[in-house]
Structure formats: C-alpha cells, structure tokens
Design a protein around this nucleic acid. Structure first.
Lengths: 233, 233
DNA sequence: TAAATAGTGTCTCTTAGACAATATTAT
DNA sequence: ATAATATTGTCTAAGAGACACTATTTA
C-alpha cells in the first residue's frame, strides 16, 4: 500500500498489467483525424484500436507514451497530455489490464509516414467516419479524448500544435472550426487571440488568391503556458 | 499491448504494482482539512502519507478507492473523482508502483471517527499546517488535488459535498471562502447560485443571532450534473 | 471593375465585481 | 432602538456575440 502502514511485502500480490494508450490527433485533409492500428490477434482480431503498449519497468508513464508514439507512428516532439486511467476488471479478456490513456496532438507536417516499425497495419481515420466498433473500451477513450481536446481548445494554446510553425489567422480559425464542429466569427476570434497575447506576426505574408494573409507564429512564452489554465482570460 | 498487434503473451512481462491513493478533504473547524496516515514501516517510516492501497484483481479503480475510504476512514457515500496517475519509476524504493490518485470530498457529519480498522494511526491535518515532509511524492499529489478542488469549485457543484444536506447560503459561502482562500461578495455569490439553479429552498430557517437564514438543499438533478462541465454557465 | 480573401469597427446584451440599501431577528 | 445577521438592488466596466464595414490582392 503506497500510503499505508507499510508492513506488506509488495511482491506477494498478484499484479495487473499496465499499458499506455495514446490517442493521436492530427488535422489532415481539412478534417480532424486519429491514428488507429488494426489488431492481428485475439482478442478483437481485425478490429481497430488506439495505439499503445506495456509500460516498461524503468520508464515513466510519459516516457512510455512517447516511446509508443515513436514506435507506432514515427512521431516525436509532440504535445502530450495524460487523460484518464481506465481500469475496469474485464476490459481485456486476457488478463487484468489497466491502461493510462494519453492524448497527443501533431501538425500534419510532423508525421513521417513510415507508419511504425511494428508490422501492424496503421492508418488515419476521420473522426466523423470511424470504424463501426473499436477494440476493447477504446470507443469510450476516444470519445473522452475528443471532449478534452475541444475543451482545452477553449482555454489553452493546444490548437497551435495542429498547425505548422507559421500559419495565418484564417488557417488557425479554420482549424478551430474543424475541431469544434462549428463556425466562428472572424472578428471575435481575433479579439480573443489579441487579448491572450499568444501570437506574434512574422512580418511575412502568404498569397491566397485575394488579399495576402499575414503569417504568425505563436509566442515562445505562450508555449510555456500551454499547460496553464486560462490562457485566454 | 492493449491496442497493438496482439501477438504477445501478456503474462511474460514483469509487472508494476498498482495502487490507489485517495486525498480525502473535509471542512472541519472552519478549515479545509485532509486525512493522512502515519507510516509504520520502511520506507518513509514515521512520515505521513495519503491513504491508499493495492488495487485488487477483481475490482475496478473506483471500487478500490471506495474500499480504501471505507477501510481507512470509515466513510462511504462520498464524492469521488479520479485525479491523475503518478508513475515515475523511482517513486517507491521497494518496487515499481504506479498509483492512480483520487480526490474525495465529505461533509464533517459523514465522518465516523473510528479512524479505520487498519491499526495505522490516522488524523486530520489542516491544509494550512501540513507536516513538513510527506512520504513518497504525496506532497505533489496533495498539491494537485487542492488545485483541482479549487478549480472544480468554480464550475461544478462539488462544494455542496462539504456541507450537511441542509445548509444556509452564508454557510455555503463561508465554505467556498475557506477553500478558495479569499473573500467573496455576498450578492454576487448568490447571483451565481441563482443562475445555475442548483439550490432550492426548504422553507425552513436556521436561527443565527440576527435575522434567521433560510435553509437550502441542492437540487436533485443538480447532483447528477456534478460531474458535468459548466454547471454555472 | 469585380471577385476573392483578409482584416477592423461597433452595437447590444450579458456578466462580474464593487458597493449600497433594505429586511428580520434578538437583546 | 441597536446590534447582528440575512437578503436584495444598482452602478459600472469588461467581455461575448452578431453584424457591417474597410483593405488589399488577382483576374
């Protein structure tokens, strides 16, 4: 017992397995997409699942999640956040498996398409056209992740992670609209950004067919605040 | 691998231990207090710790947390919420221990003072006068729990859990002030409550020395929304 | 000039916060 | 009446949302 009287020999108890599962989001083809892998063996053979794997004995949970991202999706340097731990006794028919769910967010240009050294089949799915049934309780995890992403979008800078380093404000707004699933008002969107003081102009412009759009980057110290509460006050 | 190709025999891997640790908050003596237990053995012998224990193989994480609460504090029927999972490889010198941290909130009248059938010494500590050093990474967990409690207070009905079933609005306001550590404006506090539509009058009054205060209870369907976002819109 | 896209101004309504006023009890 | 406490009203400033306007480019 971690916080208990402590007269136990911790090696005596039967132990569950612990995994991390990582919901990886990206904006692709003007959609919010998620990376899933196809299971080749029992249970849920042929079903699509959130990528994940065992936590090794010498690594932290965050390290395990980053390692899985690297192995299965070939991505590094991502925004990563622990979501929730799912541990129902029957969620995996093989044995007791407790999984720590993570959410990761990348921009499309960070994705290296070698889909992972594991031979497992992996592909991106649009959040609006997912497979009918996912393996294990992964539909629940995915739903939880989407809720969290939308929520975070409102008061942190996580949205910037979905775009390349430089972006125009219309691009950023479109990204927000895709994730939130609703249209936003240009003027109000910009007012909010200005108040939060999270982006700065690069001085360059992108040609668009009409009036060129100014290119922005997010401010360095705003990045540090990504995890802080109420970035937009 | 929970979501992986699945050709692994999950019994082959060395497994960490999994515990739940439960931060139990209550309002006592006009203070926010937390229940801690004193460790009797190595490691951190004599140090105070957040109550917790192993997750059994046949119970869910929530069930494990509720069982610990019952065993170590004699409380049941509490507000319980999973916080975060701490899993650094060296957080326990005995072996790899991953702990799922929970927060629980009770009203003082729910506490049965038989402090737990475990012989371990347990007592309440004021959050403003904690022991200098806690066992393991429990100071971090406690700090995380306090942050979450304050945050939740602003947009859910978790505050009601700290009071008996019937309460006056000045009592409720005082509870909020104690937890947030700041004075609130009477009128604005009541406006917020009214907008949220979370309390209803019982028609009875409590004598106070001045004008009697009306007794309220929280509305049943508001209880169901405790976990929903933005109870106060 | 027209079309397309980017960017700004402004009005209204809601809300948060500060503060003042009124109400009801006991002594 | 006075003290103590509860409860309500109001003013102001800030913010959210809706909508219209202006600006700069290409064809």
């Amino acid at each position: 017992m971690s916080g208990d009287a402590g007269s136990y020999d911790v090696t005596h108890y039967e132990r569950p397995s612990v995994t991390v599962d990582v919901v990886l989001f990206a904006l692709r083809d003007q959609e919010l997409q998620v990376l899933l892998v196809r299971r080749s063996g029992w249970p849920y053979q042929g079903y699509w699942a959130i990528p994940g794997g065992f936590v090794h004995m010498e690594e932290s949970l965050d390290e395990a999640a980053l390692r899985e991202l690297e192995e299965e999706a070939g991505v590094s340097d991502v925004y990563l956040e622990q979501l929730y731990t799912f541990g129902g006794p029957d969620r995996d028919p093989r044995t007791r498996v407790i999984t720590v769910a993570y959410m990761a967010v990348v921009s499309a240009d960070q994705i290296s398409l070698r889909a992972g050294s594991d031979a497992a089949e992996a592909r991106w799915w649009s959040m609006s056209a997912l497979p009918g049934r996912l393996a294990f309780d992964h539909a629940e995890i995915l739903s939880y992740a989407l809720t969290r992403l939308r929520y975070k979008l409102e008061y942190t800078a996580v949205g910037f992670q979905l775009l390349p380093e430089e972006f125009t404000l219309p691009e950023l707004q479109t990204a927000y609209e895709i994730i939130l699933g609703e249209k936003l008002d240009k003027a109000n969107f910009r007012k909010k950004l200005a108040r939060g003081n999270v982006v700065e102009s690069t001085g360059r412009y992108r040609e668009t067919g009409g009036r060129p759009a100014e290119l922005y980057r997010y401010r360095e110290d705003a990045v540090a605040e990504v995890k802080a509460r109420r970035l937009f006050p």
